[in-house]
Amino acid sequence: MTEYKLVVVGAGGVGKSALTIQLIQNHFVDEYDPTIEDSYRKQVVIDGETCLLDILDTAGQEEYSAMRDQYMRTGEGFLCVFAINNTKSFEDIHHYREQIKRVKDSEDVPMVLVGNKCDLPSRTVDTKQAQDLARSYGIPFIETSAKTRQGVDDAFYTLVREIRKHKEKMSKDGKKKKKKSKTKCVIM
């Protein structure tokens, strides 16, 4: 069974824990209790493949930012979460993405942009803004509501699919490099 290491990042209060708990335990946590770091595991079937999701729910508070490099190193894919009623959390996505790329030393890291709290009427981040940002990053965008469960499975499952595509691409690139290195030079 394939294991996928997913990391949920975003500013404090955007609903990272609520999304994760909704996926794992099928219930909505409405009281806000700032996370330092929590880890969850769940076995699911995605596109006919049974897999184990190892999900790291991270601290959004700035005082825990020193811990970010460590979990970013171990993560295979990242859910970059903002709240649709919090423009600052949307603007912060850029910083999370840049930090992930720096730590992973790669421009090509599996990510999904997630606009959470889409059940709320007080939207300050337009869907088109988020779609445009995701398009500019070359990553999928999904709106979710941890409260109603809308888009929750889709967000995590899409990230797994992005990781699969990335692994497939990397193995193809690896095979191309191996083929090239088999060419021999004969000096007579």
Rank of each mutant, 00 (worst) to 15 (best):
Y40F: 01
Q129N: 04
V8R: 02
I139R: 07
D69P: 09
M67G: 04
I46V: 09
V152T: 08
T158K: 08
V44L: 15
Q70K: 06
E91D: 08
F28S: 01
K175I: 12
D57L: 00
K42G: 08
L133C: 06
Q129D: 14
K172A: 14
K182W: 03
A146F: 00
Q61V: 06
K16C: 03
P121S: 10
E76G: 05
L53I: 15
D126N: 08
V44Q: 15
V125A: 10
L159E: 03
P121L: 08
E63H: 05
Q43F: 09
A66M: 12
I36V: 02
V114Q: 02
I84K: 13
K167Y: 06
P110Q: 03
G75W: 05
G48L: 06
Q22A: 08
E76V: 12
D38L: 00
T158L: 09
D132R: 05
L19I: 11
D54E: 14
A11Y: 10
Y32P: 01
S65W: 07
G12E: 15
I100V: 14
P110F: 02
T50N: 13
T20S: 05
L113E: 02
H27C: 10
Q131C: 06
E49S: 13
I24N: 04
L159G: 04
V160W: 08
D105S: 11
R135I: 13
A83G: 12
T124L: 07
S136C: 07
M170D: 12
P121T: 09
E168W: 02
G48F: 05
L53E: 06
H95P: 02
G60D: 01
A83M: 13
Y71G: 15
A18G: 09
R102A: 14
Y71H: 07
A155C: 14
H27K: 14
D173G: 11
E63Y: 04
E31M: 13
G115S: 09
K101T: 15
D38A: 00
D132V: 05
S106M: 12
D54Y: 08
C51F: 07
K101D: 12
E107I: 07
R161F: 04
E168G: 11
V29F: 09
V114M: 05
V44C: 10
N26L: 05
V45G: 12
Q22L: 03
A130L: 11
L52K: 15
F90V: 11
K128Y: 06
Q129R: 08
V112F: 04
T58Y: 00
E49A: 10
D47Y: 06
H94Q: 13
S39Y: 13
V9D: 02
I36C: 00
M111L: 07
Y32W: 11
D173W: 12
V7L: 04
L6F: 06
D30E: 12
N86D: 14
T124V: 09
T50G: 08
T20C: 03
Y40L: 00
V7D: 03
R135A: 12
F90D: 07
Y64Q: 02
D92V: 04
G151L: 13
G60R: 00
T127A: 06
S106H: 11
I55V: 14
L19N: 15
L79K: 15
F156N: 04
R135V: 10
V29E: 11
G77D: 02
G60H: 01
P110S: 04
L159W: 03
H166E: 09
R41D: 01
K16W: 01
V186M: 09
K172L: 06
K169W: 04
G77W: 11
V103W: 15
H27R: 10
E62G: 04
D119K: 04
V152G: 09
S136L: 12
L23I: 11
N26R: 10
F82L: 09
A11F: 13
T58D: 00
D30N: 14
K167F: 05
S181H: 02
A130W: 14
K5G: 06
K117S: 12
F156V: 08
A130M: 12
Y4C: 12
Y71C: 15
A155F: 14
S17L: 00
S136G: 13
D57A: 00
Y32C: 02
K88V: 14
A130E: 08
R41Y: 04
T158M: 13
N116R: 00
V109L: 05
I84W: 13
V81Q: 09
L113R: 01
I46N: 11
A18L: 00
V114K: 02
Y137N: 12
I84Q: 14
T74E: 13
H27M: 15
G60N: 00
G77Q: 01
D108N: 10
L56Q: 01
T158G: 06
G115A: 12
S181P: 12
D126T: 08
F82S: 13
Q22M: 04
V45F: 07
E63D: 11
K5H: 05
K88C: 11
K169C: 06
F141I: 03
D30L: 14
R73N: 12
V186D: 15
T58R: 00
C118W: 07
Y137E: 13
P110M: 03
Y96V: 14
Y137C: 06
T183I: 11
Y32D: 01
E3G: 12
Y71S: 15
K42C: 05
C51Q: 13
F28M: 03
C118E: 06
R73E: 12
K104W: 13
